[in-house]
């Protein structure tokens, strides 16, 4: 019984979202529901913030491993929140400065680590160990060649072959994955909406 109300909410919300897709007259209901859901989900950020502060405070208090770095996290967090609350977030505010000059370059740097990782992963993983791995290696290699001018210099057909691999076998593979995964998502969504799957509410079956 303790799950009756939550399961009803899931059911009603799910059905409204499906309905608004097929019944134009209910679209506005669907739109409001989505707005509500965005608001509710946004409140969760406060739980996250509380947890982050708690973990690091705990680490400092009990001198956990690397506790000396925890104040850095707390200071960084506080700096963003305070500047944002006090000065606002528009262009030219301290919040914006901190974001553009510190958070954004760090994001870009983490992202660019991929250039290195993609190289080491390719070096290790692309070995012609059996015929299927060889096929994977060849298709990767041809597409890679097709993406640089030197590919066309070796043989002018290489960019075309690479484009063909992208448009034919790649398209087929991607489609199979997409259709299969869509079925998995439809079935999982159905189980959630109809309360067959309820583990997200705390494992109670």
């Amino acid at each position: 019984m303790r799950l009756f109300v939550p399961l009803t909410i899931t059911f009603v919300a799910g059905i409204i979202m499906i309905l608004q897709f097929f019944v134009p007259a209910t679209q506005s209901m669907g739109e409001s529901l989505q707005e509500w859901y965005m608001i509710v989900a946004s409140f969760a950020i406060f739980i996250g913030a509380a947890n982050l502060l708690q973990v690091h405070a705990h680490r400092i208090r009990f001198k956990g491993r690397n506790w000396k770095y925890s104040p850095v996290t707390i200071v960084g967090f506080t700096a963003m929140v305070l500047t944002g609350l006090i000065f606002g977030i528009e262009k030219g505010t301290p919040f914006n400065f901190l974001f553009l000059e510190m958070v954004a370059p760090m994001s870009a740097t983490m992202f660019s680590l991929l250039a290195f990782f993609v190289a080491s992963a390719a070096f290790r993983a692309f070995r012609a160990s059996n015929w299927r791995a060889t096929l994977l290696l060849i298709s990767a290699f041809v597409v890679m060649l097709g993406r640089v001018p030197i590919g066309a210099m070796i043989w002018d057909r290489i960019p075309l072959i690479s484009e063909w691999i992208m448009q034919v076998p790649n398209l087929a593979g991607q489609r199979a994955v997409m259709i299969g995964a869509a079925m998995g998502m439809v079935a999982t969504s159905l189980r959630m909406i109809f309360g067959i799957e309820r583990s997200y509410l705390g494992g109670a079956d």
Binding site: Y69, V72, T73, V75, F77, V81, G84, M102, V103
Partner: peptide, 10 residues
């Protein structure tokens, strides 16, 4: 640690 804190605050 700085990145985690600042981005969470952001």
């Amino acid at each position: 640690h700085l990145f985690v804190g600042m981005s969470a605050g952001y």
